[in-house]
Amino acid sequence: MSVIVTFVGIILPYITIVAFFGGFIYRIKGWLSIPVPMPISVTYPQSRGEQVKNIASAILIFPDLFRKDRNLWFGAWPFHVVLAIIIIGHWRLFMDIPDRILMAIGYTTQGIEHLSSVFGTTVGIIFFIAVLYLLVRRITQVTLRNMSNPADYFVLLWLLGIAATGLTMRFVGLPYTNIATMQNYFWGIFTLHPIAPPTDPIFLTHYLLAQLLLISLPFSKLIHPIGIFFTQGIKHSLVVQKQVR
């Protein structure tokens, strides 16, 4: 194994795991340790059921953003939805639970592969387009361009890079899309007995970029899905939905 393969495939994954989970705990603990001296109380009294419903819809369909900034919603919502689907799809690489669930509802192994290639590829393309849309929006809107710093563009380019390498693997159909190989590899990582990863350069690039993104995630603005629970985003969804009704 070359040095690069060893680093990306065997050393970096452990750094990623520690930085990702440790980073999140560090950030959340940091936030929680600060007091809230002046809570702004603007919510309406609502039943628990209503609250759960409103919070769930706020997280799943961003209704607030849809009402208030539709142009952004058309980039942001598809982006986050396909991102969630992609994360579920990649779950297959770690464990066979998704496959078992699909088999339980009547899919054959071939059927799953077919679903993965058609659905997975479509979703990947949507992801690529959504990120591109967000990037174009950031470049073309003067207001946004004025306040963006290099990192704001870089994150989007980075996501494009991950999507592009991922899609390339789809189209070229490299041999290690074989699920069993990947599951073996990750099982090795998780049980602290790492084995050699696939050595294809496209895969390694994809894997490297994804890991670096995960490492930076808790320490950058990408922490916003956690931050929303600390700001008033969720509270607003409670208030505004009540008002509209």
Binding site: I34, A76, Q141, L144, K221, I228
Partner: peptide, 15 residues
Amino acid sequence: RRSVATYLDTCTKCG
């Protein structure tokens, strides 16, 4: 004040 750090960290500058 918790608001300050959380607001500064969470903003994605979406515009």
